[in-house]
């Protein structure tokens, strides 16, 4: 168990050394370990071969023409995005102005026209008023 842990620790140190990330002291110890351990040397060889394989995936740098086309596309995209945001803002502004105008309109109508008190009931007697008045005007029957 502890042997495995020890091996894993060495592998990690070896990996960091392989990447040039080990401290000077660590590098010295790793080099000494490499001298003693054939397994460590085999591992190192395996990683070198992996590195060579991965290097096959290095792509060709883009041509100046390709870069220019990409930049032009990006600038178009940027302009389109700015235009889209500006258009959205303009629409929101219009909607807000419209809403405000409608609200103000309703308020004005309500204040000036709809809420003016009407005296229709007081100035024109209704049928029931007339009936009551007629009833009150009847002579009281004498027994």
């Amino acid at each position: 168990m502890s042997q495995n842990k020890g091996k894993q620790e060495w592998d990690l140190r070896l990996s960091a050394w392989f990447d040039g990330e080990a401290s000077t002291m660590d590098a010295g110890e790793v080099r000494a370990h490499l001298m003693e351990s054939p397994a460590a040397r085999a591992k190192l060889q395996e990683w070198r071969s992996l590195r060579e394989d991965l290097a096959l995936l290095q792509p060709e740098a883009p041509s100046a023409q390709q870069l220019f086309a990409m930049q032009a596309r990006f600038e178009d995209g940027l302009a389109e995005e700015v235009f889209r945001v500006a258009r959205a803002l303009r629409l929101w502004n219009r909607a807000a102005v419209l809403l405000l105008a409608l609200g103000l309109g309703f308020w004005v109508v309500d204040r000036l026209m709809l809420s003016v008190p009407t005296d229709t009931y007081a100035s024109e007697p209704s049928a029931i008023d007339t009936a009551i008045r007629e009833f009150m005007a009847r002579p009281i029957p004498q027994n």
Binding site: P59, A61, P62, Q66, L67, M70, Q71, F74
Partner: peptide
């Protein structure tokens, strides 16, 4: 974009 465009493409 000029500085990093090619790197990000890579």
């Amino acid at each position: 974009f000029t500085v990093y465009g090619a790197k990000i493409y890579g």
